[in-house]
């Protein structure tokens, strides 16, 4: 099965200057755990995940410790989120985006997802324009017996 048969044809994406607070709102509304970031031409130039946002809101050392147990309280996280609420998402997104093409096969997509630990992958056309997203659940749903 090809990516264009598997993908969710949802072009929900954010711009480079979309503020963090809007990104959180969109993730909540769309049910997506990450959102592609597109440039003025609509080409995918980054991706922002829940993890990127949490990382942005946490002190750097916690990422190294891989634990939030050193945080005195969740208030610190809330305060930091408040500080970056209106910052452009370009500051926090992941710039090395893994994408697939509409004609890429399911095995290739599954392999990338497993190797790179991705929950979803944007599907782009030859010009880099977003045409859909393949989520892990899309693969599981289509491949179930």
């Amino acid at each position: 099965m090809k990516a264009h048969e598997l993908m969710r044809r949802d072009l929900t994406a954010v711009d480079l200057d979309t503020p963090v607070t809007r990104v959180i709102y969109l993730m909540d509304q769309s049910g997506l755990t990450s959102l592609p970031v597109v440039d003025e031409e609509g080409r995918v130039v980054g991706i922002v995940s829940e993890r990127d946002l949490i990382r942005a809101a946490l002190p750097g050392y916690l990422d190294m410790l891989q634990s939030a147990s050193f945080l005195p309280s969740v208030n610190q996280l809330a305060r930091r989120l408040g500080e970056i609420a209106h910052e452009p998402i370009a500051k926090f997104m992941t710039r090395e985006v893994v994408t697939v093409r509409p004609d890429d096969g399911d095995f290739h997509i599954a392999d990338i997802m497993i190797r790179k630990g991705l929950k979803q992958i944007p599907v782009v056309d030859a010009d880099g324009h977003l045409v859909g997203v393949v989520r892990r659940i899309d693969l599981l749903h289509r491949l179930k017996p």
Partner: peptide
């Protein structure tokens, strides 16, 4: 433009019919 729970249902129905969706929430 889509909004709220009803917007989610509209989106889900569209996607199930192979319509590409590009809405503002």
């Amino acid at each position: 433009f889509l909004a709220g729970h009803t917007g989610q249902i509209i989106l889900r129905d569209l996607l199930s019919r192979d319509v590409t969706a590009n809405f503002v929430w």
